[in-house]
């Protein structure tokens, strides 16, 4: 059974995605000016509503109850957190939300891999390679954002630490995650019910990497770190778009990836920090030893 709108030609779906993409671009642009910022946020939200509504109505939904329950639970939690948060705690909440987005991207790529092997349709290189990238970036974003939010909230130690052991752990995790990605591409596994172990290995390695990337960075730099991780979660969404062949995922994800990176640079400049310092944690940062 196809979705409610599934009988319409594919171009209708693509056209709705185009409208959503334009609304995202206009919304982001409006948010850079004080007078239009609130309107921009609304325009972007409208784009999101259109994209989600069309997707829900278009695609074949085998379990509508499960989907409705997930949307209600997620929407309820998000709204409750946003409404009850104290003004001073908003930055860490943004960090938390951002982590959830990155984590969702990693899970989607994993679910798609599991689904493709289960149906025996095989895993083309384009899918496994982009899934590996989405998995790595998504996991780093999820755990990195949780640590960043925890630091801002005072749950994780806020002082910067620099240790050689930390650098070794980061290097080992990065190599392990990339090795998992290569293994996934080279030997994707086609057996029915295959759980794609190399993907989950990659997720674990990237998760540890995400934690150790942010732990050494001082609490004062956390807003910049969250801005950078926001750019990452955009990239994770874009690569998920490659996995699923979804145009609006690619456009919106890339928009956030690029604009988030520029915003990170601008935030660094206004705080008199260098981006390399934030990017590589304590690596070359004498001034972080304060």
């Amino acid at each position: 059974m196809a979705g409610v709108l599934g009988g319409l030609p594919d171009s209708v779906l693509q056209f709705a995605y185009l409208i959503a993409s334009v609304l995202f671009i206009q919304g982001l642009r409006d948010m850079t000016h004080p007078r239009t910022a609130t309107r921009g946020n609304g325009i972007s939200a409208l784009g999101m509503f259109i994209a989600v509504a069309v997707t829900v109505l278009w695609f074949e939904i085998l379990s509508p109850l499960v989907l409705a329950a997930a949307l209600l639970v997620g929407g309820g939690i998000g709204a409750w957190l946003a409404v009850t948060v104290e003004t001073t705690e908003m930055p860490q909440l943004v960090g938390l939300f951002n982590g959830f987005g990155g984590g969702a991207s990693a899970l989607v790529a994993g679910a798609e891999l599991v689904d493709l092997t289960a149906t025996g349709s095989g895993l083309p290189v384009g899918v496994t390679a982009t899934a590996a990238i989405a998995g790595i970036i998504g996991s780093v974003t999820f755990w990195g954002s949780l640590v960043a939010a925890g630091k801002l909230h005072g749950l994780v130690g806020g002082s910067p630490v620099s240790s050689n052991v930390g650098h070794v752990i980061k290097a080992v995790c990065l190599v392990a995650a990339l090795a998992g990605g290569v293994a996934l591409v080279v030997q994707p596994g086609f057996a029915g019910g295959d759980l794609v172990p190399s993907y989950w290995f990659l997720i674990v390695a990237a998760s540890v990497l995400g934690i150790f990337l942010v732990v050494p960075i001082g609490g004062a730099d956390m807003p910049v770190v969250i801005a950078l991780l926001n750019s990452y979660s955009g990239l994770a969404a874009a690569t998920t778009g490659f996995v699923l062949n979804n145009t609006v995922l690619i456009v919106a994800g890339t928009l956030v990836g690029a604009s988030g990176l520029i915003l990170t640079v601008i935030m660094c400049e206004s705080m008199n920090r260098s981006l390399t310092n934030v990017l590589f944690g304590g690596l070359g940062g004498d001034d972080e030893m304060a």
Binding site: G27, M31, A45, E112, S233
Partner: peptide, 20 residues
């Protein structure tokens, strides 16, 4: 940053397709 972060939640579309 918060508004851009909300847009990166576009990954919801992928989640909806896969979950469904």
């Amino acid at each position: 940053m918060s508004g851009a972060n909300a847009i990166s939640g576009i990954t919801l579309l992928g989640s909806v397709v896969v979950a469904g």
